[in-house]
Every structure is written in C-alpha cells, then in structure tokens.
Nucleic acid binder design. Structure first.
Lengths: 171, 171
DNA sequence: CAGTCTGTGTGGCAAATTGTCGCAATTGAT
DNA sequence: ATCAATTGCGACAATTTGCCACACAGACTG
C-alpha cells in the first residue's frame, strides 16, 4: 500500500510513517495543501489527513483530493474532532474519521473496515493509555503550562498534577 | 413535506410533531422498528430517526429504510451521540446527524443543509469527551458487546456499564 | 519597591467514581 | 436440555476527584 500522510505535526507524522514503513508500505508525507496536492498521484492508495493544518481547512483538501483521485481512500485523523466535521468529512468522501490519539492498528483498521473485510485482531488503546496520550498532546500544545492544559481539558488542575506525577501508564 | 418521526420518547416525539404540523407539514410517528417500517411508504419525504430505540439499533432501521425507499432523507437525532455512530450513519445513507436536544429549526436545517461551511474546532476535546468517543468506537467495533469492550479497553465491565448509562459529556 | 497576576507544589477532606463479588435472568450454540 | 457467555444491578470497600486553602516564584506595572 502506498500512503500519503498529510499533517503539520511532523513528529506524529514521522512516527506513523516509520511504523507503516516497517509494515512494508510506501509512505510519502506532506505538511500543507500545496505539498499534499502535488504529491498525490495515481500511485497513492490511501491518505491520512489531519483536519487542522495551519489555517487551511482539511475539508477543502479532502474535496480536492477526491476530485483529483476518485479511487483514493482518505481517513481523517484529527485532534480537534467534532461530530459536525465528522459528518461533513464523510459526506465529502472520507472513508473514516478518527480522533487523534490513535494507534497504527486503529488507523489501518479505519481503512479496512470500509472495505467490508473481516476485522483483524487489533487491540485498541486502553482508556488510560488514550488519556495519557491526549494529555501529553495537549500539554505539549500549551507549552507545558499545566494550568492552561487543565482548563482546556476540562479537568481540575490538582487532578491533572496528580495524573502527571504517576507516569507509569502502560497499556 | 411528509415527515416520519421514529422515537420511543413519545413526549419529545409529539412535541416535535406538533411543531411540524403547525408549519404545515404532515407528520406520522413510530416508536419501534416494526411501526417504522410499516409506516414508511412513498408518501414520506423525510425521516427523523432516534438511534437508541429500546434495544433495537437505529442503524439497522436506517439501512432498512434506505433499502425500502431510496429517495428518502433520513436525519439521525440522538441523545447518545458519538463520532463513530455519526460516521456509520452517514456511510449508511443518513443525510445528517444531530445531538439531542435540538430545536425544530436545527432539524429542518439538517435536511436542507448542503455541503459547506462547518467551522473547525479550536479547542481539543476534554478528556471525558475523548473517552466517550473512544468507548463508542470500540463498542461499535465489538458489535455492542459490553463484556468484550471492557476487556479490550482494560476497564471493568461494571465501570463501563456505569459510564454508558450516563449521557455523553459535552465538551 | 509594593501590588497584582498567573502558574506551581502541597495538604486535607468530603464527594464521586471505580474495582470487586455475587447473583438472577437471557441468549446462543451444542 | 445444558453449558458458556453476556448482561443488569445491588452492595461495599478502595481510590480518585473536586475543591478550598496556603506558600512561593516570576513577570509586569505604576
């Protein structure tokens, strides 16, 4: 499978890319609309698209990609998910829509569930793991500011502090 | 316009019906799958469907309705909304997906909305919201099997049950 | 410099949530 | 019919949370 990853978070993007490559897939990345459209040719089978690129709307890219390559399969993957954008994305032709702390298995599964395949044995992240990943992501977004992160996450600062202190969160 | 309202909450259903009638529309109601299918004939233009009818899956009804009357427009309206069911619903042919409570205007708008302008979120999901979405997704993957979902999520079945009883957390 | 914000660690305690056990009712397959 | 799995729910202890209070450190300002 040839993947195109469109995400301005290069850290996340490269991690995902590495894992896909290890599986034996071809991966190309893009960090903005221009790159994305330029690198999306017939060789691409699957696209992982972040909805929130800089200022640009991922939904717009989605439309353009679908117009360009009708056979392409696009999965939306975003940290700023909402039901309304999910609905819109599917109507525009995406095959699935995931919230961002998502494992490779889930992402691959998101492509294949639509193909009507029988689902392979794929373990989703535990709730605790998911929570941890999400917290780290938001914390990072807020430049390590605990108070702001707690507000943004709708949780008590005290609680967030306590959660951060006990890091050992294994699956 | 001829509406068919499918909802086991007769209070909500009748209120909505009254408001539609006052607008000059025809309204028929149903509270379960059987009634819904029986009352869905060519005269119906629009369906408002609650996803959580007793034990029955609204998604199943959605498929049957679409198979029966391909031209019909179905809007999902549910109190237990999640991104994964929204995605499923749209893929199965619903034209929109709303969270209860929703006003008449919103509902009518949902039928008429053309593709277009949804605003991207600017704040990340709260941890609770994210947890809810994840649970719904995995639950969906496990075909509604609570025990399996709990195992898969590394949480106690009892806890999962309790979480599912509560309504989705608003961001 | 004193005064005002905002962010950070910490303690304590009531309130809420979760982990566990158990049990009856259901369901599905054999 | 029978066995295994699932489910809903009550009860109770173990944890975790929400929340208040305080002390301290920078940053910024008049």
């Amino acid at each position: 499978m040839n993947y195109l990853l469109i995400d301005d978070d290069t850290v996340f993007s490269s991690v995902l890319a590495r894992m896909l490559v290890r599986r034996g897939d071809q991966v190309i990345t893009a960090t903005n609309t221009e790159e994305a459209l330029a690198r999306c040719d017939q060789s691409i089978h699957r696209v992982v698209l972040d909805l929130k690129l800089e200022q640009e709307s991922g939904l717009l890219i989605l439309q353009q990609l679908c117009a360009l390559q009708p056979d392409i399969k696009v999965v939306i993957l975003t940290g700023y998910s909402s039901i309304s954008t999910a609905v819109e994305a599917i109507k525009l032709g995406a095959v699935n829509y995931l919230c961002k702390p998502a494992g490779v298995n889930e992402i691959i599964g998101a492509f294949e569930s639509s193909a009507g395949n029988v689902t392979l044995e794929q373990a989703p992240l535990s709730v605790n793991r998911l929570e941890w990943e999400h917290i780290q992501r938001v914390l990072n977004e807020n430049a390590g500011n605990i108070s702001a992160t707690a507000r943004s996450l709708g949780m008590h600062r005290r609680t967030l502090q306590r959660k951060l202190q006990k890091r050992p969160v294994k699956n």
